[in-house]
């Protein structure tokens, strides 16, 4: 007499052991995949950012208001920086979320640490996006151009 043993991973998993059950759906798998995909893109974006800003020409000496104005006059660098901001903030926020989940043992502690984290992330992402898209090379206050700006003659 032979007993038939079902092969594992045949899809017959009792509901309580299913990893994708529950209300969170596939969130953790999507987060895991996002870390890898955004990571590859961020290597290119950040290495490019560091090379152009610190290695070329006068390097750090060239960085001032005019340097930023020069870069953001070009939509290419606006979208480069926008992509870097969003991907880096989401990548970093998810990384810190993982660390909070690992080390904060009390449910309440985890909850408020993550609340602070998400609030900071939303503020920084919105602030950075606003700055990139509303940047003005010639800021004017009460009809007077601020010193250091780049105003059309």
């Amino acid at each position: 007499m032979t007993a038939t043993i079902e092969s594992p991973r045949s899809g017959r998993v009792a509901p309580q052991y299913r990893r994708n059950g529950g209300s969170r759906g596939n969130f953790e798998m999507i987060a895991w995949l996002f870390m890898r995909l955004s990571g590859v893109v961020l290597v290119v974006l950040i290495f490019g950012h560091l090379f152009v800003n610190l290695m070329v020409g006068e390097g750090i000496h060239a960085i001032d208001f005019g340097f930023v104005a020069g870069k953001w006059a070009d939509p290419f660098w606006q979208f480069w920086d926008l992509a870097m901001l969003w991907l880096a903030m989401l990548h970093g926020t998810n990384g810190v979320r993982t660390i909070i989940n690992d080390y904060a043992e009390k449910t309440g502690t985890r909850r408020w640490l993550k609340t602070v984290l998400y609030a900071a992330a939303v503020v920084i992402i919105l602030l950075g996006t606003m700055v990139i898209f509303t940047f003005n090379p010639c800021p004017v206050v009460d009809g007077v151009a601020l010193p250091g700006g780049f105003c059309p003659a």
């Binding site: 005019g66 930023v68 606003m130 003005n136 800021p139 601020l146 010193p147 250091g148």
Partner: peptide, 10 residues
Amino acid sequence: DTSLVRVSPE
């Protein structure tokens, strides 16, 4: 710090 470009060039 980069957001300071929206405060003033100086």
